[in-house]
């Protein structure tokens, strides 16, 4: 039996055993602490409300956005753009990344192009996507796709390369063909790491979404955020930022939850 307080003390012992309950409370505490500091600073009048609106003003702005500005449909369209681009990236990057990990010719063909595009700053491509695809959904989804696909494919190829050689050789000596080997052994072995790579990529999609929606859009969270800035409505700007943060946090936690469910053998 642990002495009282031992669980809490473990949190500050180097490499101590995990204490999930205490860690959760600490995380919630940190979140609340930021909120309280924000509340105190904003309400004290030390900072101009234009610079730092109070949490209450932000809540009110949120309410206005949902009731008066059809914010739900803005959120819906932003989520749809992110997922369209994310799925388009994943559907191509997963098979291509796996092939790149296994066939030198495919790596030699694609890697220089991928590395070149990977280093281009995505905002710099906005004028191009606008010229090519106009201001419709196509240009926004394409921008997000460019921003994520070229990163994701290298992550997937790395995940595939990290599968132990013994797994592949075991598959071969049990009579698996190349296709069977990729499907039944490689893909299955890399799956947990791949889900993590996809989770990280989904986060990047949100980063580029705001770029796309600020520059050329008449809908979406990014558009509303930018419009609010133009009219100096900083509570609405804060509400927009918090909305993105909450959606990001929720989808990240959802994928982590699924990861624990699907890959119980790792946890």
């Amino acid at each position: 039996m642990d002495p009282p307080g031992a669980a809490w003390r473990d949190l500050i012992v180097f490499r101590a055993a995990p204490r999930p309950r205490q860690e959760l409370w600490l995380s919630i505490g940190a979140f609340l602490a930021v909120l309280i500091v924000w509340l105190i600073v904003a309400e004290s009048g030390l900072v101009h409300p234009q610079i730092l609106p109070s949490p209450r003003a932000v809540m009110a702005a949120w309410w206005r956005l949902f009731t008066e500005a059809e914010y739900i449909s803005d959120i819906g369209i932003s989520v749809a753009r992110v997922w369209a681009a994310f799925l388009a990236s994943a559907v191509i990057a997963i098979p291509l990344g796996i092939l790149m990990s296994g066939y030198r010719a495919i790596t030699a063909l694609f890697e220089p192009i991928i590395d070149f595009v990977r280093y281009l700053p995505v905002p710099a491509l906005v004028p191009l996507t606008l010229i090519w695809l106009g201001i419709g959904e196509g240009s926004k989804v394409t921008l997000l796709w460019i921003g994520t696909f070229f990163q994701l494919i290298l992550l997937i190829a790395d995940d595939a390369r990290r599968v132990p050689k013994e797994f592949i050789e075991t598959g071969r000596t049990l009579g698996a063909s190349d296709t069977a080997l990729m499907k039944d052994v490689l893909l299955r072995a890399m799956l947990p790491n791949m889900v993590d790579s996809l989770r990280i990529t989904l986060g990047w999609c949100w980063t580029y979404l705001i770029v796309a929606e600020i520059v050329a859009s008449s809908s979406g969270i990014g558009y509303e955020l930018w419009t609010a800035r133009r009219y100096g409505k900083s509570p609405e700007v804060f509400a927009g930022i918090l909305t993105i943060g909450i959606i990001g946090l929720a989808s990240d936690q959802a994928i982590r939850f699924l990861h624990r469910r699907w890959f119980r053998y790792l946890h």
Partner: peptide, 19 residues
């Protein structure tokens, strides 16, 4: 001429599939 089912292999490292 290459690996196949005729030549079964057991490795030192644990090669059982964890999934």
């Amino acid at each position: 001429e290459g690996p196949n089912r005729d030549k079964g292999m057991v490795f030192q490292s644990y090669s059982s599939f964890p999934w």
